[in-house]
């Protein structure tokens, strides 16, 4: 029992879960009864994409990489989706093509980082510019709509909750599949130490490659959900997403140095970021300073969560020995 509890506390997502719950409670105190149906549907629709892409990003971060092309890929998918739907293509075909485009983006990232060994952050900066450039090329100004049937389904299925939750569920289940697969173990291994993983017979380059492809797949699903929700095409729609996703992952206990973290933590982190905005709106009445307040809150959350996670890793080891998770 006690060891179960310690395991729970040591779970990298634990701190972000605490943050999430406290924000729920704080919001309830600040604006009682805010958690109604409209809030939840709206929240899932507008924050769902961030939650989903954070889980995708956590795959790359856990395997020791970095991906700042999240917004590039998502914008591209958004634009492709809308352009195809304008041409009157069948919905299922559109989705298939979107996923293929997403996979293609992931493959490019994976090739350059994995097999060509270019520093991840620089590679994905370059590819981000490539992808968002193509998106802007296809659609220089915002326009378009999604197929009527799909839109109706998204907004009405299961009382409006169904569609966003379905998308989230796909992502979360996808994450659990990865987590429980042999590949998952290898992702963690490569993230912790490439050399030792290599010595253990793991094909490090391939694992890195796969991590980017999987992440891109996750972003794609997230972009499909986002596009349906916004029901419009805009090559800059996802522009701030990368930064937020990285922050969400860090809050969720994913170490940027790799090997530590849980996609669920990233989801908690992303949800907290969304909830924090509600909190800020309730506290800071001056509309012009709300961005500033949420920025400060984000910075505090990042510092607090990282330090708490580190403290826990140091104090709650199974043997009661003080160990340092930072040192390898």
């Amino acid at each position: 029992m006690k060891s179960k509890l310690i395991n729970f506390i040591r779970w990298p997502a634990f701190v972000s879960l605490v943050l999430l719950v406290s924000l729920l409670i704080i919001n309830q105190i600040l604006s009682p009864g805010y958690l109604n149906k409209a809030y939840i549907t709206n929240f899932l629709g507008s924050n769902g994409p961030l939650i989903m892409s954070s889980i995708g990003l956590s795959i790359v971060l856990i395997s020791g990489g970095m991906d700042i092309s999240v917004d590039g890929i998502m914008s591209l998918i958004n634009v492709v989706y809308i352009t195809l739907s304008e041409s009157g293509m069948q919905t299922i075909l559109i989705l298939v093509i979107c996923i293929l485009v997403g996979l293609f983006c992931g493959i490019i990232n994976g090739l350059f980082v994995g097999y060509l060994r270019i520093t991840p952050i620089l590679t994905t900066f370059a590819t981000s510019s490539l992808f968002s450039g193509i998106a802007l090329w296809i659609m220089p100004s915002p326009r378009g709509s999604v197929p009527k049937g799909l839109l109706n389904w998204y907004y009405s299925w299961l009382g409006g909750f169904g569609a966003p939750i379905l998308f989230l569920l796909i992502i979360v289940i996808g994450w659990f599949i990865i987590r429980k697969s042999k590949l998952g173990i290898m992702l963690y291994a490569v993230g912790a130490n490439k050399e030792n993983s290599y010595l253990s017979g793991i094909n490090v380059y391939r694992v890195q490659f796969i991590s980017y492809v999987l992440a891109a797949l996750f972003y794609t699903i997230s972009a499909i959900s986002m596009t349906t929700y916004f029901s419009g095409g805009d090559a800059t729609v996802a522009s701030a997403l990368t930064m937020k996703a990285i922050t969400a992952c860090v809050i969720g206990g994913v170490l940027l140095s790799g090997g530590v973290g849980d996609g669920i933590g990233a989801a908690f982190g992303a949800t907290s970021l969304g909830l924090a905005i509600t909190t800020v709106l309730a506290i800071v009445k001056n509309a012009f300073f709300q961005d500033f307040a949420s920025g400060v809150l984000m910075l505090i959350a990042v510092i607090g969560c990282t330090l708490l996670n580190r403290y826990i890793a140091n104090k709650f080891s199974k043997k009661g020995v003080v160990i340092n998770a930072e040192k390898d």
């Binding site: 370059a126 590819t127 981000s128 510019s129 490539l130 992808f131 968002s132 450039g133 193509i134 998106a135 802007l136 090329w137 296809i138 220089p140 090559a235």
Partner: peptide, 9 residues
């Protein structure tokens, strides 16, 4: 613009 940004990348 889009093509330019893409090629720059």
């Amino acid at each position: 613009d889009g093509a330019r940004i893409g090629i720059e990348g």
